[in-house]
Amino acid sequence: MKAAQMSLTRKFEKVCDIIARYNNDPSKLIPMLQAIQDEYRYLPEEVMVFVATSLGISPAKVYGVATFYSHFALKPKGKFIVRVCDGTACHVKRSEDIIDALRDKLNLTEKENTTSDMLFTLETVSCLGACGLAPVVVVNDEVHGEMNRAKVNELIDAIIKKEAANEQR
């Protein structure tokens, strides 16, 4: 069988380390997946099947857990994760417009939230707790407050410019 041979020659050492760190305990699946996602930035299918098999649980169960929690990504995310806060305070201060502006700028839709060059992923998040600065946009871990359409465009352009410079180097 092809599949069996493939796995023979492939090992996921980091994943093994992570699983071992949690004593192969299936009840620690969530922290394990979090640690794996920290490594990969998403949860590749092969890795999840591997985790399931080593823990003696079914891949469907792992898939079920991974798809239940919004923090787990099953597809690779862009290098920059742009999160728009849509908590009550931001919503009241029209975070919707910010989302629209970002979608326009990045050419994204509700369904397709990662740019084709994998530079940006757009997400919404319910309340980052920076309500005083509403509406708020967070790029990776950096918070940008009191956003509007113009500031959104500036922000994205700056990142693109910086990236292009890096690429050339």
Partner: peptide, 26 residues
């Protein structure tokens, strides 16, 4: 200390416990 993984419903106590047990937070 356990970090959640992004599910509001886990604030419900039985869901939270399911989540600690490594399950879907239902």
């Amino acid at each position: 200390v356990m970090e959640g993984a992004g599910a509001f419903v886990c604030g419900e106590e039985t869901a939270l416990m399911a989540s600690i047990e490594g399950k879907r937070g239902m």
